[in-house]
Design a protein around this nucleic acid. Structure first.
Lengths: 344, 344
DNA sequence: CACGTATTGTGAAACGTTTCATTTTGCGAT
DNA sequence: ATCGCAAAATGAAACGTTTCACAATACGTG
């Protein structure tokens, strides 16, 4: 390990005090131009790099915000992260991405680490409500927290959500309009609030229809394939004619699974996904899906957080609720068959 | 902002010195059990959280490694990141994900920030060779750097790569075997080493064939659609019968674009992608693709980095080269038509 | 009970900044 | 020349840890 040069060495080389070097870096106008250039020369000559650790210790706050997501490999979340980055960049703060992988334990560890690092603020989609008090604690200790895509039990703080119950309703309505009377919901675990809400909205709006439940362990393509096997194994007259999947990964797996078993989509079974990730439109059969404003979700959340950071006590907490939108494509349209949808 | 309690307050409440509290936290065996529990009580009673900033300043090193990727929204990179996380978790170090977005300027800013933070190590897929000297500088200053998915001009350090030239060759061979004699390469910018290598391998192995070039501005679905428009506009006898796309996003866009314009895949135009992201198999026409060991790439890179971190001078630099593999699916198989491929 | 030794605990220094009260410098006006 | 005052520079304290040489206990043994 090479010991790096510090501010004092720069000061010595430039023939000034450490305080002056610090001023050159942080308040250039306070120092005369001639010395300023002298200091800059010393800096480049020594290859000096400011030690942010010491700076943070002294100033007491970092210049980073964190975003904790459920699953980095889910395009929904990477789009959210992208939105966060856009907003953060405008404010000159850096974003660190943490992945809980839907594991409460990893989520807890991340939060502890972030608190130890005195992170400036946290955006988080919690795994479940297990750590809600922990999050309130964080906020009480001066680390603002904004909930993303979840709002249960968080009325007195900022959150940015999409109406999942309404999303479930949209899916049900769409399928009922298409004439389906025997439906299925695929998703899980129901402990995940988003899944529970989508399920609730779906069953509410489809109260007249028959609804089967395909419980999945995760919200992944693999789980979708498994659920498809279950579904395809049913005798034709017992099989739902349409499935609503709790997210697009599940729906893509479902699509692959049922087609592999010789069922036609949408003729034998129609499929509606959720999120409308970019790959939904490019699927084997372009996927109908409940669209969420993914990037805007992230951007708005970041803006709320940044406002809370800069405004401090003057900040007013807000709960932003976006409305989802159903995008109909071939996977629910008997007429369109195998014709691809156009660009979104 | 709430002023947090520090180690001294804990010490006072527990009736010991600050050093003892520190020992309880870092070397528990050095302190008697009775005092240890007393200190722990004080910690929980005050809700004390260690200030990692001060700890890092004193110890001189952080417990985090960074991974800088070209595009967080590209599933290829999220899979790589996932591999990194797995390896890092085994070693108890945290991962921070930085997104350069293929922008050299953002890449530079990230590197500066990471250096200021005295990050423990960096995994990076550089945008191009613009900052190679900067990376060597970082390494010379005691921040190990491992190159991921790129190795040009990096012979004396660790890197983990997949043979892109060979990948390009595989694609060409595959298409030649299928009888295609009029090919196209879609990708860009050629300043991106991966693109250049794939292009080179492709043209090398297809030297007998006619090869058109569809230059794209980015490696995204949108760019793929644009390239498709270009291609579809050609008269049928001037149009290549097969396209090799520099990555799967491009290929998915290409697929959407050509189908939307009434061309059939693979009958009118066959398509080969690159990366074999999970969504390639789920595409409108399941996509043939050159598979890279995405997760293993990340995991291996992280392991090399961690070895360099713990072994220090004893570490031997290694350049790991993986071989790609062509996965044939319907997008290049005239026989299979629209039949979906099975699970991978 | 005194001794020797291993086990615990202490206290101050050090890490590299920023901050701010204070001192020094520069310079135009007298 | 000298004064006055703004501008510039200084130097030491402080941020919250960890470390380490040293002091103070505890405890088994003779």
């Amino acid at each position: 390990m090479v010991e790096s040069t510090n501010i004092k060495e720069v000061a010595r080389l430039a023939g000034v005090s450490a305080g002056t070097v610090s001023n050159v870096l942080n308040h250039p106008h306070r120092v005369r131009e001639t010395t300023r250039t002298r200091v800059h020369q010393a800096i480049t000559q020594l290859g000096y790099v400011r030690n942010d650790t010491a700076r943070q210790l002294r100033t007491g706050s970092s210049r980073q915000i964190a975003v904790v997501v459920l699953n980095v490999t889910n395009p929904f979340f990477t789009d959210v992260v992208h939105g966060v980055e856009i907003a953060a960049e405008e404010h000159g703060v850096a974003v660190v991405v943490c992945n809980s992988g839907s594991d409460p334990d990893r989520e807890r560890r991340h939060l502890s680490l972030l608190e130890e690092q005195r992170i400036r603020g946290v955006l988080i989609t919690p795994v479940n409500d297990e750590h809600m008090t922990r999050l309130h604690q964080l906020a009480a200790r001066g680390i603002p927290v904004v909930l993303v895509d979840q709002s249960a039990g968080w009325t007195n703080r900022c959150s940015v959500t999409v109406d999942d119950v309404q999303g479930g309703r949209l899916a049900a309505q769409h399928l009922l309009e298409r004439g389906h009377r025997h439906l299925a919901f695929a998703g899980g675990p129901l402990g995940v609030p988003q899944v529970a809400d989508r399920h609730r909205g779906f069953t509410d709006a489809a109260c007249g229809a028959r609804i089967a439940m395909a419980h999945t362990a995760t919200l992944s393509i693999a789980s979708g394939r498994e659920a498809a096997a279950e579904l395809a194994a049913l005798p034709a007259d017992e099989r739902p004619t349409a499935v609503f999947c709790a997210n697009d990964l599940l729906a893509l797996g479902m699509l692959q699974g049922v087609m592999q078993r010789g069922l036609r989509v949408p003729q034998d079974v129609a499929i509606v996904g959720y999120d409308d990730i970019e790959f939904a439109a490019a699927a084997t059969v372009p996927l109908s899906s409940v669209r969420q404003p993914r990037e805007q979700l992230g951007r708005t959340a970041a803006e709320l957080l940044l406002d809370e950071i800069v405004s401090g006590a003057a900040h007013k907490h807000r709960q932003v609720l976006f409305q989802p939108e159903l995008i109909a494509r071939a996977s629910t349209d008997p007429g369109s068959g195998m014709v691809a949808s156009g660009p979104r």
